[in-house]
């Protein structure tokens, strides 16, 4: 009498189930990573955030250009934090403008971002979101200066200053 060997053993079923579950979990985690990346880039350089940064650029270029240049080049610093406007003669107007634009952090740096990236990598006094934004900005303006802004609604923008 022949033994009926159709079907799967329990061990075979367990192994296949474990393998399929593992693949599904891996695919799901990859998808979540993609989605987080997509959500993150939706906050970078939106039309609104760029125009707000250009507003700040107009003010800095028109009124405080000398102060900005001097601060960035002071003691070979990689950047100048202008968020609190304390460095400017027109600090009162600057404060009102920053409030209207809903600015959280505003940094002026040299067009080559390597100095800023290195400074933030060693010691980052700002949010992780700002550090990631700077890290991912590969647009280099070798001559001149760059303005990097983080807003209170968690969006970011970077523009080349017209100085």
């Amino acid at each position: 009498m022949k033994k009926n060997i159709k079907g799967f053993t329990l061990i075979e079923t367990l192994i296949v189930s474990t393998f399929v579950t593992g693949v599904l979990v891996y695919l799901f985690t990859q998808f979540v990573t993609l989605k987080n990346g997509y959500d993150r880039t939706l906050r970078y350089n939106t039309v609104e955030s760029i125009y707000k940064a250009l507003n700040l650029d107009r003010y800095l270029t028109g009124i405080e250009a000398r102060t900005v240049i001097s601060e960035v080049n002071k003691n070979n610093l990689a950047y100048a934090d202008i968020s609190d406007c304390s460095k400017f003669d027109s600090s009162s107007y600057c404060g009102v403008l920053m409030s209207s634009l809903d600015v959280k952090i505003a940094i002026v740096t040299k067009g080559d971002l390597e100095g800023l990236k290195a400074a933030l990598k060693n010691n980052n006094p700002y949010s992780e979101g700002l550090y990631q934004f700077v890290k991912r900005d590969n647009r280099v303006s070798e001559d001149g200066y760059k303005l990097i802004v983080e807003y209170n609604d968690n969006t970011f923008a970077s523009v080349n200053l017209s100085i």
């Binding site: 125009y51 507003n55 003010y59």
Partner: peptide, 30 residues
């Protein structure tokens, strides 16, 4: 300083997707 605000929100997602315009006008800026 001019500001124009029109908030637009959606119950399915967080955030304000409306119009928020800021503009400046003054001789020093030109």
């Amino acid at each position: 300083i001019f500001e124009i605000d029109l908030p637009i929100t959606n119950k399915l997602i967080d955030g304000d997707y409306g119009i928020h315009i800021v503009a400046q006008k003054g001789n020093l800026l030109y």
